[in-house]
Amino acid sequence: MTARRFILEGLLRGPLTEPAPRADETEVRRLAARLDAAAQRRLGRSLAIREVDAGSCNGCELEINALANAFYDLERFGLRVVASPRHADVLLVTGPVTLNMREALVRTWVATPGPKWVVSAGACALDGGMFAGGYACERGVGEVLPVDAHIPGCPPTPAALLAGLIALVETNAGR
């Protein structure tokens, strides 16, 4: 009974979903330069994302998870988080890349069919952040994989993540 009331309420109330943030123009241009036309034709305006935590404090994961809530509603942009790298176009990688996760990350990338992109998210993923220089970490995702785009922040806000990912889709849409 209670469930029925919630569903009814959901139908009657206006949606909470907010307008999309604008993708950063420079980021879109930078990405466009990296994608060949054939890849753009094949993918269309839809991307499947596999998230890989490569040593994050889990702050980035909290904000990536928030993308699914009603305010951001990631899937309306054709962006889906998928359960396997085999289904993914994009690897969204967080953390400085710990040496203990390095092989798992590389194997996840190898398991992702081409054409594929790597997006690093968060300060650690850029250059190791606060964890650079220790015995246990690389200096960011770029040390291990070819990175196509970076989303800054510690952690990046859902709005920043959305803008970064939309930039990827827009580049992809055949500009």
């Binding site: 040593g55 953390g95 710990t98 203990n100 606060m130 964890f131 220089g133 246990a136 970490c137």
Partner: peptide, 18 residues
Amino acid sequence: GYVHRGLEGLMAGADLDR
């Protein structure tokens, strides 16, 4: 242990802010 970043080692010698 997959996300071991070496926190105790990075702490040693850090100033209070860091």
